[in-house]
Amino acid sequence: MTEENNITKTESNQDNSFKIYSKKAILGFSIFFAPIFGGVLLRQNLMDDNRKREANIVLLTSIVFTVLTILIVNNMEKKTSSLTYLLNMGWGVILSEYFFRKYFPKDNYEYKKIWKALLISIVIVIPFLLAMIYAPSE
């Protein structure tokens, strides 16, 4: 992208004619669900801003963060949910503080409500929780 296009893109975003998910929403979804959930919210923000390449980078990064969390937690002798939350918090901070600030440096956006995303996330997570609860123990 040339410098002129970049400036035009920045200027066109000054009117903020679209709503985005907030940094707090991205951090919360990353911590309480998984980094991929926060990444999907940030990706949606970028897609709404017509930044498909950046959106895909954020999604890929959040997938890597989620896979790393799974690998780290599953390779520990004693599995604890506190480690999962700690890792999710770290990844969420990267998504919300680094990536969010990089792509949305101004703080004059209207924010989307999280209820639809929350409902979708809960519906996705329920089968995994049920499988963990009803899985035969070793």
Rank of each mutant, 00 (worst) to 15 (best):
Y109Q: 03
G28P: 09
N50I: 02
N45W: 00
N108E: 08
N16D: 07
L87I: 15
G92P: 12
Q44N: 14
I36D: 05
A55H: 05
T61W: 06
N56I: 06
N13F: 11
D15Q: 12
I122M: 02
T8M: 03
V58W: 04
I126P: 10
Y109W: 12
S82P: 06
S121A: 11
Y103G: 01
E77M: 15
Y134V: 06
T80H: 13
I26N: 02
I7D: 06
I7T: 13
N74C: 00
Q14Y: 07
E4D: 11
W91Q: 04
G28S: 09
T2I: 12
K24S: 14
L86D: 08
E110K: 12
K23S: 06
S62A: 08
E97W: 10
N88P: 14
Y134S: 05
Y103N: 03
E110G: 12
K112I: 12
F18Q: 10
G39N: 13
K24T: 14
V40T: 14
I124M: 06
V58N: 10
A25D: 14
I94E: 04
S17E: 09
T10P: 05
I63M: 11
A117F: 02
Q44P: 00
L130K: 04
N56A: 03
F104H: 06
G28F: 01
A25E: 03
T80Q: 11
P127E: 00
N50L: 04
I120G: 07
L118Y: 10
K102A: 05
D49H: 03
T8V: 08
V93G: 11
S82E: 04
T2S: 14
S12D: 11
Y21M: 00
S82K: 10
F29N: 08
S137G: 05
R53Q: 11
V125W: 02
K78D: 13
I26C: 06
V93M: 09
I72W: 05
V64M: 12
